[in-house]
Computed example of a mutant assay.
Amino acid sequence: MIVTLTVNPALDRTIDLDSPLAPGSVHRASSSREDAAGKGVNVARVLHASGAETSAVLPLAADDPYAALLDGAGAIRAVPTSAHARVNITLTDGAGETTKINLAGGQPDEAVLTALVDATVEAADGASWLAICGSLPAGVPADYYARVVRAVRERAARPPRIALDASGAALVAVLSAGPEIGPVDLIKPNEDELVEALVELDPSRDSEELLRAVAADPAGETVRLARELVPHRARAALVTLGGDGAVLIGGEGAWQAGIPADVRVRSTVGAGDSSLAGFLLAATAQADAGECLRTAVRYGSATASLPGTALATPADLPTGDIPVRALV
């Protein structure tokens, strides 16, 4: 069982236009689709499509149309709330441009936040992994994910390994709480989010300087920076690097994997979530670090090759070789 927690779910509405977007004009849509999203739900959808047993914890209002889109996410553990899921609108046009309009979601009250913690502890007891994913709604304290980690580790009789896919203050709060709650088993930032976290931990550092160093040597510099966090703040880090693939840094080494040659990128929406799902699938199967990284890149690349907000299924996985090399 792999459990996901999504505190800030979203309904993704994608509209394909038959001509370039022109502000102030009337446009005709060639197609549209709606998907249940939010990072944890995305991870659950990819896992479920691959045959994994999943349980997705999220707040959900009884009259929210979002509920009808959750069929592909596996078992749902819904915490009642009055707020509907936020809506993200994506416009894609004939010129290949993508325009996103993200609406604000409702703010869960303390009763909902407490119920989410309780539901996560119950669902995660005995699971192999808990994946805590995505942004926090406005008004939710930045240390909420640290609160979830603490509760799971203190209250679950058989606590799972914990993966965290968050950024900004929510990520930093968990990293900072490491000495108290123990390091999470995996963090999954991209290179920008990694740099952002390091600068928040040490504001004397120059983010532009760090990003220039990463751009000059994506894999090597990312590994060097991640080792400032691994293993004392997080036991491992899976850092996605876009077209440069991904790196995995653990207490016993670091590895790099590139993008398969047969992949043509069409949309990066959900690619990072799919990478995490691929990693969790391999880790649950007791694969070694290199194979976990390879599977993460295969799933992330598959989603990147699909249009709009579509997520990878096993039928979409690229067949090209994904070389993995150990890094010093």
Rank of each mutant, 00 (worst) to 15 (best):
L194A: 11
L225C: 11
V184A: 05
D244Q: 14
V184P: 10
I187Q: 04
L171D: 06
G178L: 00
A234M: 09
I181S: 02
L171W: 02
L211Y: 00
V223W: 09
G245S: 12
E180F: 02
P189E: 05
G250A: 14
E208G: 13
P231Q: 10
R205H: 07
D217F: 01
L241R: 10
L194H: 08
R233Y: 06
L198T: 10
E228G: 04
L210P: 03
G178E: 00
L211R: 15
V214Q: 06
G220W: 06
E180T: 15
E208C: 00
R212D: 15
T222V: 12
S204E: 13
L210D: 04
E200D: 11
E228C: 01
A226C: 05
D217C: 01
V239F: 05
R227W: 08
L201R: 12
A177Q: 09
T240Q: 02
G178I: 00
D185M: 01
R233I: 07
A246K: 10
V195G: 04
A236F: 04
E221K: 14
A173G: 11
R205F: 03
S176L: 08
V214F: 07
A226R: 03
G245D: 11
I249N: 05
I249D: 03
V230Y: 01
V199E: 00
V214K: 09
V239D: 04
S204K: 07
R212H: 13
A236V: 07
